[in-house]
Nucleic acid binder design. Structure first.
Lengths: 95, 95
DNA sequence: GACTTTTGGTTTGCAACGCAAACAGATTTG
DNA sequence: CAAATCTGTTTGCGTTGCAAACCAAAAGTC
């Protein structure tokens, strides 16, 4: 009935879609491709981690901290279920 | 970028999809087909009216009050734009 | 070597929101 | 005439998304 609230939020849906198509993406890549603010990206990605949909990996590249993300198996499953539920609602009408 | 927040809420999206496929629907019809609580249906439909997406018509059928709804032209436009924006995000996946 | 700026993020504050429960007003039933 | 039903609306509250503030380290700049 309801959609997965974690994924349904537009910013997070877009994060998930990008992560689904890529082995791994770092903070700045997501920041520039999705045009979010740093604060929002941080919080959304944290929420996705809390749900077990993405993994966060922090390393140093030289002296610079670098945070990168990858989608988990759970995340992929949830994302595909999400699209299924969207399709169901869409079939309610003729659009 | 973001979706139309009025429509993006699942309950409202489903209300819109039902109304899009029907000349007009009353409160109880929506209540039973969508399985919402009365309170939630009332509030969501009020919000859709506030956005100009739905018209509300109140009449008496005999002695019983009856509230019915129909989607407006604006509402249809917004709904179809909504699905377009969903499709755009979906295409982020299979490049 | 002391500033300012930039980089890479996290935390905080707040207004808006969705949800369930309470409420209201009229009607029917026992 | 009290209780239950019907048709909705309003209220209260916990959650959330967003922007702005913050922080720490690195890199320029003078």
């Amino acid at each position: 009935m309801g959609f997965d609230k974690i994924i349904h939020e537009p910013a997070r849906l877009r994060i998930m879609m990008v992560l689904a198509g890529v082995a791994e993406a770092d903070f700045n890549f997501l920041l520039t491709t999705l045009e979010l603010t740093r604060g929002n990206l941080s919080r959304h990605v944290e929420k996705l981690e809390g749900a077990g949909y993405v993994e966060i990996k922090k390393v140093f590249i030289g002296k610079i901290p670098n945070t990168s993300y990858r989608i988990t198996k759970d995340g992929k499953g949830a994302l595909s279920r999400y699209w299924k539920s969207i399709d169901e609602v869409r079939r309610l009408g003729q659009f």
